[in-house]
Design a protein around this nucleic acid. Structure first.
Lengths: 199, 199
DNA sequence: CGGCGTTTTGAGAGAGCTCAACATCGGTGG
DNA sequence: CCACCGATGTTGAGCTCTCTCAAAACGCCG
């Protein structure tokens, strides 16, 4: 869900770009909310520090994702945001976003709809993580991302492994096993589903 | 996030209650959207059926949760909803909800804010599932749900195990080990954090 | 061609799952 | 009041599966 699809051009036009070195802080818990951020490149981690001084990671956002959507409705941030790699971000100022939503109900609705879809997607990913078996988890992923019989892969298999919560070795082995079993056929950048497995 | 906190009373007043026997269908993929549902009791699973005829589960909603929020912005459902146990639901009709949001911008904003918070929570849960070690996963949970030094447990430990994605045996053992190590102390319905672990 | 990241395969170990037995607690009914 | 019953809580032992560490083939780009 690219920002372009749900944020009015007027708001995108006033975005503020910024760069962060690895380890630099974007915002801190308790800090005044400036708006929501889009991660353009690199990775930003959201975390809190517990009483014993340990950083507890809430989420790691990668390029293309947005963070701090909830900050639109809060006056302070509820966690820290720190660059885990050199990173580039865009800030969409809170007042500009809220003003746009106030003026244009359609825009507000698009934002809400985007969040509702995202909730759905995230729930699905949690369900996926409930599956222990690497093979079943991969099948779950393939079933849900198949367009017809073909799954088009974006990025590398290593990235996919991370998304699935598997080591890349486990994913390679699982895909090899599924191919040996005749369930799938692999082509560069895509996987074709062949036949259903028997129960 | 109880429905009461973000849905106007006027909408709640026109909710339609319904009961389902285990296995009964609430709605089907492609069906016209009637609105969003609150699961009052029991469990409802959201799923799709893949080409090979297997049901692929997207999510299992338990009592207190709402499903099909995205249906407000779509004319047809994008998955099936089937009762996994005997269940009770409440339907909040789409037109009533949307009308309320149109009349009352505050209500619409409350809904959006709720979704934004939910996205945050779900992301945190995904992060939690990235942690392999049972001990670390439990620590992650305890750190984030501690109110001061005390974590108040809602429901049984078995429920908690499911939420954490562990077997109940693994959770019992882990809690016992943490208690032996002096990290926590357990009282009925609550866990008290004692000291930080050393790295 | 040389270097770097991805893909692939191998071997071993550790951690959580499975199966199983038993304890504990609350509620129910005789 | 107590025996019974089901669900939760607890512990034990073995096994499977994925992770980890290692090494090598492959593909791409300068």
């Amino acid at each position: 869900m690219p920002v372009k699809d749900w944020l009015p051009a007027a708001v995108r036009a006033v975005a503020v770009s910024g760069k962060l070195k690895s380890g630099e802080t974007l915002f801190r818990l308790g800090g005044k909310t400036e708006g929501l951020y889009e991660v353009v490149a690199g990775r930003i981690r959201l975390s809190r520090t517990d009483r014993s001084g340990h950083e507890v990671i809430l989420y790691v956002a990668a390029a293309g994702e947005t963070i701090a959507e909830a900050s639109l409705y809060s006056s302070t941030y509820h966690c820290d945001a720190i660059a885990s790699t050199d990173a580039q971000v865009r800030l969409y100022p809170k007042h500009a976003v809220l003003a746009a939503f106030e003026k244009d109900a359609k825009a507000a609705q698009a934002f809400t709809a985007m969040l509702a879809r995202q909730v759905m997607n995230l729930r699905t990913r949690i369900e996926q993580r409930n599956i222990r078996s690497a093979r079943e988890r991969v099948r779950h992923f393939l079933s849900l991302s198949a367009d017809g019989r073909t799954v088009t892969l974006t990025g590398t298999l290593k990235d996919l492994a991370a998304e699935l919560g598997l080591t890349h070795e486990a994913l390679y082995r699982t895909l090899a096993a599924l191919e040996r079993a005749g369930e799938i056929r692999r082509g560069r950048g895509k996987i074709v589903l062949l036949r259903a497995r028997s129960l």
